[in-house]
Design a protein around this nucleic acid. Structure first.
Lengths: 224, 224
DNA sequence: AATATATATACGATGAATCGTACTTTTATT
DNA sequence: AATAAAAGTACGATTCATCGTATATATATT
């Protein structure tokens, strides 16, 4: 059987957040978790402790939290449900990609049942990624991560296709969408100002100056 | 503004259950609630007490619980979300109507946001009823209940169109579907055995003997 | 090396939702 | 009217998730 363990929505949220932070920084610090989950630090300590007892994570004080095999399995399932929820919201309900994250955070816990998630995946056409370009883990927990590099690191004159956008803030996503900076779009570096100044990119014929912070959430696959 | 008050999923469940029982029996007894919500009797007493303090319900011991105006408003919103969820599950995800109830009980709490429920309603084509035929309350809380009578009470030889089925048990719904006893179907009473015996009905050319308990969850609109 | 900052823990407390057992009151049955 | 059955309440206890304040420890900065 090896079906996935059922845990509370809270623990699912924690596992998901740890997964994200682990991916981004290698491990999840309690402070980052507190910010991500919007709870007090002491709460993190408490919950982390109980999660370690249940063998979902390991915690080395001051070094951060990491998922165990058992924890990762659940986390991947939550991420899978989250990203399929986002696809449902954009592809079926035609909701803007800037609004999907928060809604998906609630939906993901309501579609854990196999009888729901499988038909959902099928109806959506087995999408490989969420609307922001992040891969959707398979039922068995496989993640196919497309190789890509930061737009901010792309050399002058180089061009590539946007693969994913790693920022969920609605205002940021709205901004990117108005410029056409969405997965699939072709971008070219026209200029890179020194001292970490803005980057001028060309998208669909138009040129825009992007701050480095913006260029650091966009991942592209370089055209060779 | 007059937007709908936000309460916990638990309270939403209670309000929804009270709404159903009120509709069926005029009021909700604590015992019925305990069965409906699968919790201990004492738990009902506790929660009921706090809900009465918050003015969601009134409770006359041994007489039952009833919704206040405030409570009914929330209850109708929950029912609306529940039934739209069921439509999503059947119409979009093509899930069998026998499985939608339990799944919708979870989904209903995840789609409370106006930004989600409005697009959902629109995509579904503003359906008037859930897959079982129960009316979907409007955004403002209006319920348009189609006049109907129990199949069990229909006279010999009379015929009508099934309007709704008021039973959520998966096995019952599966059984009804195999006989074609679904909303919209035309049925005719061919025979009524005495002493509350079975009723023979004709559906789509075929005849079936139904127990009274089955004929008492099917509501029809008589053809005049 | 000293100090400031970031990171983490301890501890006491709260509220929501739940349980189970014992007890009480009302309604139904004989 | 007596009694059995159904309905409801009281009460003590538990678990989960949370808070805030105070304190401790480690890492980074000067």
């Amino acid at each position: 059987m090896s079906s996935i363990e059922v845990v509370s929505p809270t623990i699912e949220e924690y596992l998901e957040a740890i997964y994200r932070l682990e991916k981004k920084k290698g491990s999840a610090k309690t402070g980052d978790l507190a910010k991500e989950l919007n709870v007090a630090l002491g709460t993190i300590t408490n919950t982390i402790e109980s999660m370690e007892k249940q063998n979902f994570i390991t915690h080395k004080p001051y070094k951060g939290v990491n998922l165990t095999k058992k924890g990762r399995k659940i986390a991947l399932d939550v991420v899978r449900r989250h990203r399929l929820s986002e696809r449902l919201l954009t592809d079926v309900l035609h909701i803007d990609w800037s609004k999907t994250h928060d809604a998906a955070c609630k939906l993901e816990h309501a579609i854990a049942d196999k009888d729901i998630i499988k038909p959902l995946e099928k109806v959506l056409g087995k999408p490989k990624t969420c609307p922001h370009g992040n891969p959707i883990p398979s039922e068995s927990g496989k993640v196919i991560e497309e190789k890509s590099e930061l737009l901010a690191n792309l050399g002058l004159g180089k061009e590539g296709i946007i693969v994913k956008v790693t920022d969920e803030r609605p205002d940021m996503l709205q901004y990117l969408a108005t410029l056409g900076l969405v997965p699939g779009a072709n971008v070219q570096i026209e200029e890179k100002a020194p001292f970490n100044g803005p980057i001028i990119v060309k998208v669909m014929g138009a040129s825009y100056a992007l701050g480095r912070n913006v260029a650091s959430v966009i991942w592209v696959k370089k055209n060779e």
